[in-house]
């Protein structure tokens, strides 16, 4: 038996919004620790991973690990039927269920909606993602700042370079209409309202597709802050963490290389 109840639908709605433009379908792996997912986009340029830990849920029960193959567009359609304050309960049989049940209940518990989502058999390879590898540079900034930088720059062009030196990050773009750049310095005091922190072991300069960096802004409502981790020649890791260590959405984006 798998049963998981979120107090408010907002959490899962936001998480799905952050991933559904990158992934069409994926296996939601349920275990005693929580709900997780990993999938590459079709061109194999971006890997998206998501975890909702068991503590994110008001009720969480997973007797045996199970994998639910879900079409992201279908689950989003069903979750549109939940008001943001409604609770969401997901129930599935752990013995080869062919559908998952979604129950939405309003705050006064006098309106209860039931939906059944058909599950799919999805062949997916599980990838081993290096945990906390030794990054050359890590920058943390308010997620609203992230949105502003990459929505602005991706309008100019798709080739965005991130260069991080001691205490300064430079984001630049080259496009058909011209080019642009933006420098962001580490904020001075720790009690600054919107801190930017930059940790550099070695200066790094890498180029990425702006289209993807802009797509990741869909995760901004999840988290107040975002962390970007860079190592030359490796994928860029971008993490949006849910409050209270309830989980995260992480993207790994392949760099562009000069040939």
């Amino acid at each position: 038996m798998f049963e998981a109840k979120l107090t408010e639908s907002t959490t899962i709605k936001r998480v799905l919004d952050a991933i559904k433009d990158l992934i069409q379908q994926a296996n939601f792996d349920c275990s005693a620790d929580g709900l997780s997912l990993q999938a590459m986009d079709t061109p194999h340029v971006c890997l998206t991973t998501m975890t909702l830990r068991s503590q994110a849920f008001e009720v969480y029960r997973c007797d045996r690990p199970l994998s639910m193959g879900i079409n992201l567009s279908s689950i989003s359609k069903i979750l549109k039927c939940a008001a943001s304050k409604d609770s969401v309960k997901i129930v599935a049989d752990d013995e080869g269920a062919d559908c998952a049940e979604f129950i939405f209940e309003n705050e006064s518990a006098d309106r209860i909606a039931h939906f059944e989502l058909k599950l799919m058999d999805i062949d997916s390879e599980h990838l081993s993602i290096p945990e906390d590898s030794d990054y050359q540079a890590i920058i943390s900034m308010p997620s609203a700042e992230y949105r502003r930088i990459f929505s602005d720059l991706s309008i100019i062009g798709d080739t965005i370079t991130i260069e991080i030196n001691k205490n300064t990050a430079c984001f630049s773009v080259e496009g058909d209409i011209g080019n642009g750049s933006l420098n962001l310095a580490q904020t001075d005091s720790a009690d600054e309202k919107n801190p930017v922190t930059i940790n550099v072991k070695e200066p790094v300069k890498m180029t990425f597709p702006g289209k993807y960096l802009n797509t990741f802004t869909k995760a901004v409502p999840i988290s107040e802050f975002v962390t970007l981790c860079l190592t030359d020649g490796n994928p860029l890791a971008i993490e949006f963490s849910l409050p209270d260590e309830a989980g995260f959405v992480r993207y790994f984006l392949a760099p562009k290389i000069d040939q």
């Binding site: 590459m40 061109p43 194999h44 340029v45 971006c46 890997l47 390879e125 599980h126 990838l127 081993s128 993602i129 080739t159 180029t207 597709p209 490796n234 994928p235 790994f252 392949a254 760099p255 562009k256 290389i257 000069d258 040939q259």
Partner: peptide, 14 residues
């Protein structure tokens, strides 16, 4: 023009 890398080479299949 920079060419996009493929992620397959970065992550091993378990």
């Amino acid at each position: 023009t920079p060419v996009q890398n493929d992620l397959d080479e970065f992550f091993a299949v378990c």
